[in-house]
């Protein structure tokens, strides 16, 4: 009798859950956590990451369009953002659409790449995620040398590193901001630019977030 009740309760629960999950397909792919679990800080953790990141001086890397990524690509820009993510990482996928929009706003002097840590194994899946998120830029999927070291030292995903023209890491964002994503990344970018002795920039329609030091 008790078992019957539990089974029927579970069946109803499962049915409700399945119905709920079917209705959750929002365009922007934003995952709304349960009430009360939204972080009230604008910023994720900024700084050297966990134990610092290696500079990108000597490396080879391949991108998803069959091209290569080299230190020449870094040298031709004031600053390059590399967003490190994984296909299994919920928060990485959640920030992707807004990050893609942010990347579109960047001037030519700022480069933007994503780096998918399991892109080589799961290429189709990765490509599908990127296109659904509306990302039109390049994604690094393989590499050796300092790129390999960078991937190894990125213990958390998502992690975004800011690399200057000589390959030094000028800043990073670990984790992903819940609110004002563009503003947070802009602030981190500007801090990185300042660290390298360059001018801060502004982007149309983006309110720069407060620096959390």
């Amino acid at each position: 009798m008790l078992i019957k009740r539990i089974v029927s309760f579970l069946t109803v629960l499962i049915a409700v859950l399945i119905l709920c999950s079917c209705g959750k397909n929002e365009d922007r792919g934003k995952y709304e956590g349960p009430e009360g679990f939204v972080r009230d800080r604008d910023y994720s953790y900024r700084g050297d990451g966990f134990g610092g990141f290696p500079s990108l001086e000597s490396f080879t890397a391949g991108t998803d369009d069959g091209g290569i990524f080299t230190s020449d690509d870094l040298a031709s820009r004031d600053m390059t953002l590399i967003n490190i993510w994984a296909t299994w990482c919920g928060p990485c996928l959640n920030e992707m659409p807004e990050l893609a929009e942010f990347a579109e706003l960047l001037p030519d002097s700022i480069g933007f790449y994503t780096l998918c840590v399991d892109g080589y194994e799961d290429t189709d899946n990765m490509a599908s995620i990127l296109s659904k998120a509306g990302y039109s830029g390049k994604t690094i999927i393989s590499g050796t040398g300092d790129i390999g070291n960078l991937v190894d030292s990125a213990m958390y995903v998502p992690t975004t590193v800011f690399v200057d023209s000589s390959g030094q890491i000028a800043g990073s964002v670990v984790g992903s901001p819940r609110e004002n994503l563009a503003g947070c990344y802009l602030a981190a970018l500007n801090d990185a630019l300042e660290n390298t002795g360059l001018q801060r920039i502004s982007l149309p329609g983006v309110t720069e977030a407060e620096s959390n030091g």
Binding site: A86, W88, C89, P91, C92, V117, M155
Partner: peptide, 15 residues
């Protein structure tokens, strides 16, 4: 097992 390895050596903070 590569999926398992990838997930096990990296931390998704939410997870």
């Amino acid at each position: 097992y590569i999926n398992v390895l990838n997930k096990a050596v990296r931390i998704c903070l939410e997870c």
